[in-house]
């Protein structure tokens, strides 16, 4: 995972080191390294990406459009977007709260909190999904109580949202913590000493100072939310037109040998991913300017 700050630093460093005489290599080594990188990226990134689009359009434009406007596909797209609309703002609030707490206050167990925030990165998404099945499933800890009260979590939107939240909550916090740590608390102190309330200080000083980091985190969080497969697969139950998100829908189509349709939806996701990367880079560039 890249953090915008570190990206900024490395960019500065490479700028310096590319001019550094001591780090000059011979032209051969330079070109060899560049070619290795290019081959690698071409083989493992560009080629598969191209093959997605080639396969998607194999049977022509009409089949492509038909695969995407198919009711099940549309339902999957809609569900994916609903999940993103719920998950991303919640993670924004959580990320800001956690980063604020960690960087502006000192309290016991701070390091434990920082470690816990990283936990979803360490745990396999499948396990994350299973946790919710074990908690809320029919045979789960709270299963009977939920059934008695007619609350559906597993195999429903709620479960998908919970699993996605679990997998994606570190993104925003992880972006903001180093940024806010670097910025320190003196600007907030200055704001308070000038008579601003805590809320106004947050609104006028803290938030504008970390807005690019926040946005960057949200973009990464959004990308992961849309693409999450493992955790969602476990809790969703794969009910067509009901609990299938886009990645799950692609898998089902593929398993049914509907390659063109599968790749058509996949190409849609790839476009989303590419747009995300472009926005991400614009944000990173903007953040560097400020």
């Amino acid at each position: 995972m890249t953090k915008p700050l570190e990206v900024r630093d490395t960019q500065v460093n490479t700028k310096v080191s590319s001019k550094s005489y001591a780090l000059q290599e011979s032209a051969m080594i330079k070109w060899m390294l560049i070619i290795i990188s290019l081959i690698y990226i071409g083989l493992f990134l560009i080629l598969p990406l191209l093959s997605i689009f080639v396969t998607a359009f194999e049977k022509g434009w009409e089949t492509y459009v038909a695969s995407i406007v198919h009711p099940d596909a549309l339902a999957a797209i809609k569900l994916t977007l609903i999940v993103a609309i719920i998950v991303v703002p919640l993670n924004a609030i959580f990320g800001l709260a956690a980063a604020w707490a960690i960087t502006k206050f000192s309290f016991k167990g701070k390091n434990v909190l920082i470690t816990l925030i990283d936990l979803p990165f360490a745990v396999s998404p499948v396990i994350a999904g299973l946790i919710f099945i074990l908690l809320f499933g029919a045979q789960g800890l709270l299963g009977e109580w939920l059934i008695a009260h007619d609350i559906k979590i597993v195999f429903a939107l709620t479960g998908i949202v919970l699993a996605t939240l679990f997998v994606t909550f570190p993104f925003v916090a992880r972006e903001l913590i180093p940024l806010m740590q670097m910025q320190g608390i003196t600007e907030e102190e200055a704001s308070i000493s000038l008579g601003a309330s805590g809320w106004k200080t947050f609104l006028y000083v803290t938030l504008p100072n970390c807005k690019w980091g926040l946005l960057y985190g949200l973009i990464l969080c959004n990308a992961r939310t849309i693409g999450e497969f493992g955790a969602v697969s476990v809790v969703s139950g794969h009910i067509r037109g009901m609990t299938n998100t886009m990645p799950l829908h692609i898998e089902i189509l593929y398993n049914e040998y509907q390659f063109t349709a599968a790749f058509a939806v996949a190409s849609l996701m790839s476009i989303l991913a590419i747009v995300t990367i472009i926005i991400k880079n614009i944000v990173a560039w903007k953040a560097k300017e400020v």
């Binding site: 003196t186 200055a190 000493s193 000038l194 008579g195 504008p208 100072n209 400020v290």
Partner: peptide
């Protein structure tokens, strides 16, 4: 009394100007 009600002006060592 909270700092915002003390009617003080504070000049910080490294100025702490609002950078944005």
């Amino acid at each position: 009394v909270s700092p915002k009600e003390r009617k003080i002006g504070f000049v910080f060592q490294h100025y702490a100007l609002f950078r944005h």
